[in-house]
Amino acid sequence: MSTASEATDPTNPTDPTGPKKAAKDTKATTATKTGAAGNGGAPPVRKVQQGRRKPEFTARRGFLIAVFMAPAAIFVAVFTYYPMIAGSQMAFRHWNLSDLTDTSWVGLQNFHDVFADPAWGTVLGNTGIWVIGSIVPQLVIGFALALWLRRRFPFRGLYQALVFFPWAISGFLIGILFRWMFNSEFGVVNDLLQKAGLINEPVAWLADPDTAMFAVLVANVWYGVTFFTIMILAALQSIPEELYEASALDGAGKVRTLFQITIPYIRVTLALTVLLRIIWIFNFPDLIFGMTGGGPNNETHIVTTWMIKITQQGDYGRASALGLVIVAGLLLFAVFFLLATREKREVRS
């Protein structure tokens, strides 16, 4: 990529290398610039003693950082981290709404209860199906849409607005919408499938353990494709056109261009989006809560809806233990994921 090409499109805010490089360069020279301003007698905001410039600058800098970070840090510490930590200690206590007189420490008993539950295996398996069955179609369809939406076509803006709106709806409400459509008696899905001759009699989608998970996944794919499309579309706009021109000159086909230029170029965004989405999908009981409530026979319970169920039974101790298991599992996963994608990222940047 030549500097000339960067200069040709200074308005493009998405170019990842242009502004970044510029930003880095200026950052490197910031210190000297400030120094020069002080020495040269250019209007300094404050009189700076020679030789002691840097420490003072650092102190002011530290103060500024602290002041700017404080509101966010205080809010998150008080309303997110404090309750989580306070909730964590419940995991090591007997803490049941049915008997609040006894909140004694019970060590790891709650964790044992979580793992010893006969339904735990089912719940864990469901969680795996839920995450993989959601993320793969979301990623593939989202990618395809982004590739196509990248190029202009008539009514693209309108199409984009229409296709993006599922993201504005709450997971809980999506569960309700699809619960109504998959209704066994009055559901439109059965009606359409029967009209198309694909099924002979109505299917009890949400009552049948074999089909309930499928129905829930359809709803989640409907919801989640948008996020991938937006993120990938945004990242695609950062790929310089010259790369495509060069690859076309080399006679590379579409598939080769996709795998050798497009995907490697947006790898960082892709990896981080997938990581964020996996965490979100994992921590997303809302849709299932609204659609099946975990039924039938626990077949659509994932770990987070399972936690809701335990909470509703009043066993806060065990629910907190499960919560800690979830946070620990996700943390481990995130660390491994970031390590696994790190090497590639360094090569890229």
Binding site: P285, A319, V327
Partner: peptide, 21 residues
Amino acid sequence: MAALVTQMIPTFIALGPLYLL
């Protein structure tokens, strides 16, 4: 990292203490 971890915390672990707070 602290920002990322907030995304991993299930709402339900914090509900009880948050209510008390």
